[in-house]
Design a protein around this nucleic acid. Sequence first.
DNA 1: GATGAATGAGTCTTCATTCAT
DNA 2: AATGAATGAAGACTCATTCAT
Lengths: 209, 209, 209, 209
Amino acid sequence: MPGGQTERTLSPREIKRRKILRAAIDVFAEKGYFAARMTDVAHRADVADGTLYLYFEGKEHLLVSIFDDMFSTFIQQLQAEIAELSDPLEKLRVMLRLHLQALGRDRALAHVLQIETRHSRRFMNLFTRGRLDEYLGLLRGIIEEGQELGRFRRDIKPGLATKVVFGAVDELVTSWLLADRETRLEAQLPNMMKLLSQGLVPCEMHDVE
Amino acid sequence: MPGGQTERTLSPREIKRRKILRAAIDVFAEKGYFAARMTDVAHRADVADGTLYLYFEGKEHLLVSIFDDMFSTFIQQLQAEIAELSDPLEKLRVMLRLHLQALGRDRALAHVLQIETRHSRRFMNLFTRGRLDEYLGLLRGIIEEGQELGRFRRDIKPGLATKVVFGAVDELVTSWLLADRETRLEAQLPNMMKLLSQGLVPCEMHDVE
Amino acid sequence: MPGGQTERTLSPREIKRRKILRAAIDVFAEKGYFAARMTDVAHRADVADGTLYLYFEGKEHLLVSIFDDMFSTFIQQLQAEIAELSDPLEKLRVMLRLHLQALGRDRALAHVLQIETRHSRRFMNLFTRGRLDEYLGLLRGIIEEGQELGRFRRDIKPGLATKVVFGAVDELVTSWLLADRETRLEAQLPNMMKLLSQGLVPCEMHDVE
Amino acid sequence: MPGGQTERTLSPREIKRRKILRAAIDVFAEKGYFAARMTDVAHRADVADGTLYLYFEGKEHLLVSIFDDMFSTFIQQLQAEIAELSDPLEKLRVMLRLHLQALGRDRALAHVLQIETRHSRRFMNLFTRGRLDEYLGLLRGIIEEGQELGRFRRDIKPGLATKVVFGAVDELVTSWLLADRETRLEAQLPNMMKLLSQGLVPCEMHDVE
DNA sequence: GATGAATGAGTCTTCATTCAT
DNA sequence: AATGAATGAAGACTCATTCAT
């Protein structure tokens, strides 16, 4: 999610902006957003306290910026990779793989995005969910496409399916985060794909249902 | 989830304790845990500020107590209702139904449990997740039982399935909460059960997978 | 201006309120409003920093309250004493005497009212001048009455005369304040009355004018 | 008051100095000295923040310089015009006319001189009053001269008369400023001269006094 | 037990000033 | 000379908690 796709040359301003953002991610992940003090972030970024305010409007904006920056980079990458595929199931798999990879690669970032960024309804309504809708929209698009092509079961509302899929991945990430395992997050992908696509109950018993 | 199964007579102390807890739920839901002030809770409960500390150790303990009280009542009810069933799929359905009912019935409580109670890793590790494990254990037990009885697909790790199911319900609740819909939360149950049990992909295409 | 006319018993709250106000007057007079820190006021009043905010909304409100408290007490006294007189010139004399006495008696208060309370247009428009209008209205009333009775020259606009009289007293106070003299402020009254009532130029030369 | 009597050619440095001073007057008048930020002044003057410090020692010096610059120009003009007159009453009239003209012509400047420049005892003692003494000395000289020549009443202390006259004009200016009238300040001069020279009380009633 | 007035530690933010370029 | 990015000291205010009544 971070790095990689950056242009050859970054302006000095952009470099410092990212240094501060990185410091904020690390500090927020370590101490939590509320316990973190602006001065901690400044020290970690190796700048003066006041400098933070030359790049960000305030503490909350720092948190919002983490979300926005990482998210928009991620969504772009997602769209690029998905565009090249035709099979909806394949698109879904790639989407979830990128999701798990992006977060699995950067534990501190994952912390901030999974937890600190969801600390209140106000914050979620104002920031988290707003951005998340782009992701959910992409996901829903894939599901609807799959239904049209007959690759996905048609008797399930795409809105609900979107929530179930997102909820599943999201919980996977959160429990990986909190359990502090050594497992690679991505390793769970095949199993999860099977479960989501085929369900809990074997086919021959579906009539029972 | 609250009330209902309590004994006939509650001690005056217990009555006031619950009054405070209810006030805390409402205030936390309205303003968010951090923005809520102890004095707000006291006013809502119609007691003096200092009185809160005769019943709870402090602000954080108030939040923990909400979780614990509601959760233990809920888990008890869950176990009682499930014990009477034999079919794992039925158990699962009842479990999720109770989950959705309990939260769908009390929006303020749902707010607190879904959001305020998850505001930091520290809090989740210390309180939220600890209590949640009882719920997750119950869920996992049902899934394992289903696999043993051949009612559930055996090629899926029960740990993963537990997370997927919990993640799905959890997300359902959260999006219901944030969207502020008029929908009854419980109404989504049949659709979700179908999706979880049969998966996204129709049986005849499973080989493709 | 302060004290004197207070009721027999003051509530404990009112006592503490006045203690804080007195501390604020002294601190503002010593260090100036802007240089004064809230913690200075709290220390002087012998209360905790936070206690200030139980009695006043903030630093600015402290300054406004000094003005309002002292001014309303003063205006009341003024009206009471003037009501008993009939001669406009006498009324004027009493008014100015009370003015000079009230401020001459309490140098710190005079400092705050003459200087700190006039630090910006915004503050003057919002607070100082608004209150002052009551005083100016009283003054103007006396002048108009004097003109009607033929005791004061009729060819002078009362609005202008009001300003001239107020400006003269006000400047007298300010220069007394800044010169840090030992003179009693009140001692200047007879001279000033003569000047205001008879003017700079002897009568026999008025035609020259 | 500004410009006018300056030499034909100003050094580039002096030009920029004045540009900054003008910017400071406007910004201080608009936002008040304390609320004004150095960066506001720099922007208004169309120079970089740091440049201000190549011309002025700091924010306070900017305010002092406004006072000094404008005042010394004013005093010079005053002395020149008065020197040509012989009648003390005429001198007084010219002095007050110039005073009212100078401020009436430049509202922003008047703001700064009447209000911002008097924000604290420290500032007044250190700067405002010090410069003002030149003005007051001039005024006092005229009054004493008038008394010697028998044109002014001898039974009034010149010090007091000076204060009364200055206070009257000063208040006139301040109330003109705050009332935000459309009146020309200077228009009040004749009336004020009459009041100051002949007093409030008609001659035939002076014995009453 | 209940009260609620008092406490005081804790922190985000502003902005005058500096100095490397 | 001019720039403007960076600095960092400083302080008003909040609010969880206590404790004398």
